[in-house]
Nucleic acid binder design. Sequence first.
DNA 1: CGCGGCTTTGATGTTCATCAAGTAAAGTGG
DNA 2: CCACTTTACTTGATGAACATCAAAGCCGCG
Lengths: 231, 231
Amino acid sequence: MDKKVSVCICEKCDFREVVFSTLDDASIQELCNHKQERSYNKGEIINHEGEKITDFKYLRSGLVKLFRRAPNGDEQVITITRPFEFVSNMSIFSDEKYKYSVSALEDSVVCTVELEYIKKLFLKNGGFASNLLTKISTINDKIIGQTLDIRQKNLAGRVAFVLLYFTQDIYKSRVFDIPVSRKEIADYIGMSTANVIRTLSDFKRDGIIKVFGKTMEIVNIEKLEIISKRG
Amino acid sequence: MDKKVSVCICEKCDFREVVFSTLDDASIQELCNHKQERSYNKGEIINHEGEKITDFKYLRSGLVKLFRRAPNGDEQVITITRPFEFVSNMSIFSDEKYKYSVSALEDSVVCTVELEYIKKLFLKNGGFASNLLTKISTINDKIIGQTLDIRQKNLAGRVAFVLLYFTQDIYKSRVFDIPVSRKEIADYIGMSTANVIRTLSDFKRDGIIKVFGKTMEIVNIEKLEIISKRG
DNA sequence: CGCGGCTTTGATGTTCATCAAGTAAAGTGG
DNA sequence: CCACTTTACTTGATGAACATCAAAGCCGCG
């Protein structure tokens, strides 16, 4: 086999824009050598709550949910996010163990870099450090904001909120395949599974949505927004 | 008046340990020159939601609450914290405006440094950057964790949770002066004021707490912990 | 085809918010 | 310092919102 110059994909990776923008090509090349890419099938666990953090991970493609198990055993979904809205360890210098679990809701690709390497980069490259802080803060702000938004809504308002989140933020389409079970929606917005279903049925009856198996169509976004806001 | 070497208090400040530990004495001196200390009386607003962020602030002494106004107008208390658990802008490089308001629950002292100065420090001093990221992440983790904990509890469990938070984390004493109104407690744990009062009355009747005006004594911590966990 | 998991719907009861009315406390002006 | 006003607190009664339980339908998969 010939000696080949490995063409590093990281140079073209969109993620570079976000947190690695201050790295020159040589550094990117080096980063690339420390990087591993891995695919996860729908349903697979990416990080497990309580396990030791050894790597820095970011989502390149796919969809994931962040969740934890409450003391009483049932699941709490913290957020559902796309690439650029997730990095594995949100406090790379403090926590040794994952606070939350992460699993793939769709087939996903995750890039992994040794945590030690990222830490060194953080310490010596101020621009990288500031980008990473910005990213992590943005994620945290989004989680806190979402949680506060949801908390003050009633049942219908919460379901409307999730549907709007899927159609506007996650899929940017009026038609999409629901990536979660009814129970997961319930665990996300803090209500019972039965009532999520009931509310969806109400929305169907009122012509706000249409559901064909796993596929959902948002017929009346305006109404959904009113319900979400008023909730 | 004689020329005096200004004895910089920052050298002895406990906060130095937390985020400024990597700064040498000369840098600390310089930081001190950029620093302003200000007292706030109980009830005063420290930061106002929506206002432009020009300074980096941290709490030196006192007690503050973080809150925002929900779209419908009523207040949501995000968290209540002591020194070392609060820095004003949790995403110094991203947000231009405060996402939340902050007000003093007890007379408080806040140190203020121009944001630009902190940003420069962040960019050139990796150790400082890592400490700051750690601090900010810890605060965010605490907020998210608290919110998730509260969410899954019932009424009594939530009130028990707040009382335990006051007695164990904030005051580290079985007896303390309640720093918030009943309504603020309600806004913190997401329930109605009337029901906060009702639950406190229940706790009084059951001999779990004693209340004399603003002063509260936790009589039976174990029972409170059971109620909080079971909630 | 038959089993198990996810979904759906109805009936029931609990939990909690809301309303109202009264009491205590704390600030305000004479 | 006292009447007055306002704000915070307290309690009970009522109804709405929501969880829970149970039973049945649906769908994918061996």
